[in-house]
Design a protein around this nucleic acid. Sequence first.
DNA 1: GTGGATGCAAACTCTTTGCACCTTG
DNA 2: CAAGGTGCAAAGAGTTTGCATCCAC
Lengths: 148, 148
Amino acid sequence: MPEPARKTRQREAIRDAIAAAKAPVGPREILESAAGGAQGLGLATVYRTLKLLVQAGEILTVDIPGESPRYELAGKGHHHHFLCKACDKVYELDGCCGHFDELTPKGFEVTSHDLTLFGHCANCVKKTRTSSGARDSAPKVHKHALKH
Amino acid sequence: MPEPARKTRQREAIRDAIAAAKAPVGPREILESAAGGAQGLGLATVYRTLKLLVQAGEILTVDIPGESPRYELAGKGHHHHFLCKACDKVYELDGCCGHFDELTPKGFEVTSHDLTLFGHCANCVKKTRTSSGARDSAPKVHKHALKH
DNA sequence: GTGGATGCAAACTCTTTGCACCTTG
DNA sequence: CAAGGTGCAAAGAGTTTGCATCCAC
């Protein structure tokens, strides 16, 4: 049987990078931010470690429609996320309006759910109002997202 | 100025394929299902047309965490989706528990949201209960999803 | 006839995997 | 020193783009 999880420089660095971030981070950012703790760190290792940490329940996948996955520390309690369409930043939201069972067809069993709010964060709302009546600062085109 | 949208065999076929589907469909499925109306149809055309239709507001992107995007006809009214973790099928849910503003920090403006429910559909619940006490029929591993 | 639309293949991004080498316990 | 971990490069899946050809208007 596979004795689980060895403790290595790179794993520490990756976990730390995620813990240090104030918002969910993607593999690329993790690589860069963890480079300090582990020079020569490879992207493949980041992915492998992320998979391990998710399976171990230490981190959670934050999957926002139209974006590639980010990761955050587990154990912060149930919450959801807000994506600012202007600056592309992700914010954590407290709480959850969770009576979804009402929406669920008979015979179905709901085991989990995922909620994301989109809009403009306080910063961007302010900016938009100050700088001329300009609409959305930029059209914001996502590479893979055909999202409207 | 670009006179918008020409009417072609392939566009008809693609729109029809989406309209005919009872659940949101992905580019690959659309290609196959639209092949009847347009032989020789290329995947690139499907993608290009999807982008057009989304921009035109005729279809919507259905982005389910851990899955690649699917598309559905617009104009069905506000609703969300349910993904069965056992059979991987997507179902439409009526309604929406929509008082998200309570969760939103001051100064933020919410313009849209996205909700997905996960669990087991009636069919799969039945199967699980009938065939031995077996848990989830299969561990269900998604290619890209590190999701737990 | 002309500009938009299409097909094909090449290019890109994100993620996973194979393999030889290194490291932890 | 053995099993597991790492780096690099190659392989894959999904999506986009360049370009020559085609076709709707």
